[in-house]
Amino acid sequence: MDAIILQILNGLDKGSAYALIALGLTLIFGTLGVVNFAHGALFMIGAFCAVTVQRILTLSYEVVDETQTDFLGNPLKVKVPYVESWFGPETGAAIIDWAVPLAILFAIPIMIAIGFIMERGLIKHFYKRPHADQILVTFGLAIVLQEVIKYFYGANPIPTGAPDVFRGSFDFGVLLGFDPNAIIYPYWRLVYFSFAALIIGGVFAFLQFTTFGMVVRAGMADRETVGLLGINIDRRFTIMFGLAAAVAGLAGVMYAPINSPNYHMGMDFLVLSFVVVVVGGMGSLPGAVLAGFLLGILESFASMNEVKSILPGIDQIIIYLVAIIILLTRPRGLMGRKGVMED
C-alpha cells in the first residue's frame, strides 16, 4: 500500500509538468488552431528565466577582507553579491536563496512578451497554411530558440537550487499511519504540485468565470460568429497565446530545482507533451490535464522494480504504448470533442 502511494506521489510532479505544458498546447490549439512545436522551447526558456534571476542576484564585486588571509598570507579577496551589500547580509542571502520563486515575477512579463512576439511576428501568418507547415515552422523556431539558449548558457545543465526551507523531505508515512521513512517526498515536489494545481485552477477559473474567458470559449466554439458580433476575437486569441506561453514558462521556472535546466529539456518534454495532448483529446483542456497526471503516474508505476522485473523496459515505453493504444481504440482521446482535427 505504501509503495503504491509513493508511486502516485512520484508521478504527480512529472505529471504536473506534463499537464501544464499540455494545457498550454491545448489552449493554443483550441483558440488559434495551431500546432505549436515550439512549446517545449517556451518551457525551457522559463527554466532559464530561473537561471538568469539566480545569476543576476548573485552578481558580485570583490572586497578585500583584512581579517582573513589566503594561504600566501595576503589579505583575502571575498566576493560580495550586490544584493547583500544593499539589503544587509541576512536579507540579501535570503533573497538569493529564494531566487527561483522570485523568478516567477520575472518570468511572467518575459514569457507573455515572447508569446506576443511569436504570435504576431510568426504564427499569425500560418493560420491559413496546412498543419504540416505549422509543425515545420514551429519546429524550426524550436531549434533556433534552443540554439540561442545554448549559445548564451552553454550545453551543460546548470544546477538551480530551491530555497533552503524546501530542501528536505516530508515524511508522508507518519501522516498516514505507516512506518516512518516508508513514504518520503521532497518538499519542493510538493510545492511544485501545489503550484501546478493553482495555475491549472487559475486558468480554468479565468476561462469559466470572467467575461473575457467566456468570449474566448465562445470563440473556440465558433470563431466566425463571435467575430460577427463585433468582438475583436483575434486580439483575445493573441492574449491567450501569451497566457499559454506564460503557463509553459512558469512550469519551467518551478521545474528548475527538480531537474537542472539544460538547453534540450524543452525538446524532451515536448514529445511527451504532444503524446499527452493526443491521449487527452485534441482541443480538450480537462483532457490535457487529466492525461498529464495519468501518464505521469503511469510512468512512475512502470518504473517500479516489481513491474520492471515482469516486463523489462516497460518504464521507457509505457507512455508511447498507451498513446498508441488510445489513438487506435479511442481516436478522439480520453475527452476529445467531436469534430476537432478529425480526418
Binding site: H131, I135, V275, V278, I317, Y320, A323, L327, P331, M341
Partner: peptide, 17 residues
C-alpha cells in the same frame, strides 16, 4: 490508420519507443 498530425505523433511515438 490515422492521418494528419495523429500520424506524425504515432510515428514519433514508435520511433521514440
Amino acid at each position: 490508420r490515422r492521418s494528419g498530425i495523429y500520424f506524425s505523433i504515432l510515428t514519433l511515438a514508435f520511433a521514440q519507443m
